[in-house]
Design a protein around this nucleic acid. Structure first.
Lengths: 335, 335
DNA sequence: AACGTTGCCTACAACGTTGTAGAAACGACG
DNA sequence: CGTCGTTTCTACAACGTTGTAGGCAACGTT
């Protein structure tokens, strides 16, 4: 059985409130009293009951991070950074896996986690702005592009700009038939649309045609989808000399398909991705990619949440942008 | 402001307890009363306060999963399975990242999560059995090898047997100079020791010498460590014709180093790993590996925890074993 | 008609904590 | 010595929920 303030108080011969004062670092406690209490705490291995504390104070010290899937490396890496950033505020992070479906995401947003958490950092795929209106509940920070001008604080990166830059990098390497893998027409595909826009922008700026046949959709952004899309492109007879994959896992799948088709990367086909996941630094060949500053994204999200928790909860939503850079590796340059 | 039972009760014109009864599905409520209450709940968007419920009932419906690092794919995949298995019991899973250090793990085990969680599934690296003795607190299920006969329920796989089998697979392919990457002398290296034992067993059974020069240590089991260890082996002049890496990320690093050295896999050197992470199905070449049944590990862990929560908390600790199989891919067979 | 049973509902207390209010002891000061 | 302010500590109530005990009707049985 767990010990309570009451047990500690009895052992130390003081009132419950005095023990509470010691636990909470209240200054006006005589040194010898404090020592006696601390001794009793240690002997009984007392731990405060967070539920009771929360009930009384209205804060749990727990925030949630909701992501579509944990075994997508990008989200796992992001989760690590969020946990690190939250540690600065002594927050525990509850990680929630939504699966990415609209209904599940709505459940999370509308507070399945109920009164257990103080705030939510949410990376939605399918959620729309209207799903979020009228949510009185927990303060929320959104990551990613989906809910563009929704009612919540928001951390983004410049998807269009980043896609344009990396496409332009391929163009400056002399590539002319640049394919794109990962387009999506579904409402979930907000990031896909933005990256496709950047891709098209870069082509246009360079005077290259936008060729529908070079743009391959991918239902999800897993390795298998990337491989399938690449095989499809090759089978269709288009002969790209470069491929912009809308994320790194797609690119790793594409590398695989190119390898199976006997094409060399980057000699025959240059490949670039997006996200800078760990795998891309060790793949064969290593992967040129857009590297969003994940640590910064996490830090901004946590700080926005902290401000919202301490400050005015009805202040207008803010949108912050995190930086990125291009990470040039073997898949676009000969070793 | 959030609504409470009291607000719903006033709106529906009933007592607080009746609303509670409706929320909890108590049968003896007149249909029209129930309808009125449900209407009020919907109108006010009422959500129960889990902290208060916990305080009263002693259960939160939240369990924690503590793993060393989330961006190690094995743990991310495991986390997904645990979340899925826990959903069967309507449990929320709080995922905790320990970092793998002994002190941090001790903090987690001794209840940093305090009274917020009902139970803990814990995959420790550095923790010893004695760190766990005398923990009165939360029920716990351990994953992995570290705390062999500790005081807590335990889910394992047969590391020695699996290592022996996959080493034997290399031997049956005709390989004779089989290196091992990932040995560790630190206390954290329990899995490493077991896998090394299986490796040595297989060599002995086949009448091959155990050559210390073929065994490369790796401080951690990341891709970079695998690459460094492989480079070290090659530089030392030993010429292995196969490598058993103690996990898949090490193996992916080793593939990378072999590629850089101009050696072909599997023609010159066969490579096998351990864990069956998603990456190994798309790497070039794809990776032969030991595939532990992660879904089963997660299910067993969750079920053990459920039994412990509902049953006798002082019953003797149980140890369950999860199955594995060999996944044969390109890194040991020509395409 | 009297009685027990069942269905439906309510009042109260308690879970462990902390904010508020205030009591008691003490020292400083006029 | 009385007054005042400070330090140190305590009693009480409240956070939102649910288990327990019990009351009142309506019903069926003798």
């Amino acid at each position: 059985m767990r010990n309570r303030l009451k047990d500690v108080a009895e052992r130390a011969g003081v009132s419950v409130k005095t023990v509470s004062n010691v636990v909470n670092g209240y200054v006006h406690v005589r040194p010898d009293t404090r020592a006696r209490v601390e001794e009793a705490i240690a002997e009984l291995n007392y731990r405060p009951n967070l539920s009771a504390r929360h009930l009384r104070k209205g804060r749990t010290g727990v925030i949630a991070l909701a992501v579509p899937e944990l075994d997508i490396p990008y989200f796992a890496e992001l989760a690590r950074h969020v946990v690190t950033a939250a540690a600065e505020f002594s927050w525990t992070v509850l990680i929630d896996q939504t699966g990415g479906g609209r209904e599940q995401e709505r459940v999370v947003a509308s507070g399945i986690t109920d009164h257990l958490i103080d705030g939510l950092i949410f990376s939605p795929l399918a959620l729309t702005a209207e799903d979020l209106t009228g949510l009185d509940g927990t303060p929320m920070v959104l990551l990613g592009e989906r809910v563009d001008h929704g009612p919540a604080d928001h951390v983004v990166i410049d998807n269009v700009g980043a896609a344009r830059e990396i496409t332009d990098h391929l163009i400056r390497l002399g590539r002319r038939r640049i394919a794109a893998i990962g387009s999506q027409r579904t409402p979930e595909g907000a990031s896909a649309r933005l990256r496709l826009t950047g891709y098209a922008d870069a082509l246009r700026a360079a005077g290259l045609d936008y060729d529908e046949a070079l743009v391959a959709p991918a239902p999800a952004w897993h390795r298998a989808d990337g491989a399938a899309a690449m095989r499809g492109l090759l089978a269709s007879g288009v002969r790209p000399d470069a491929v912009f994959c809308f994320n790194d896992t797609l690119a790793l799948g594409a590398l695989r398909a190119l390898h199976e088709a006997g094409l060399r990367v980057p000699e025959d086909v240059a490949v670039v991705g997006f996200d800078d996941i760990e795998d891309g630094r060790f793949s064969i060949p290593t992967l040129t990619t857009v590297a969003p500053d994940k640590a910064q994204i996490a830090r901004l999200a946590v700080e926005l949440l902290a401000e919202r928790l301490d400050g005015d909860r009805s202040a207008p939503a803010r949108e912050l942008s995190a930086p990125y850079r291009l990470e040039l590796r073997e898949s676009t340059q000969s070793p």
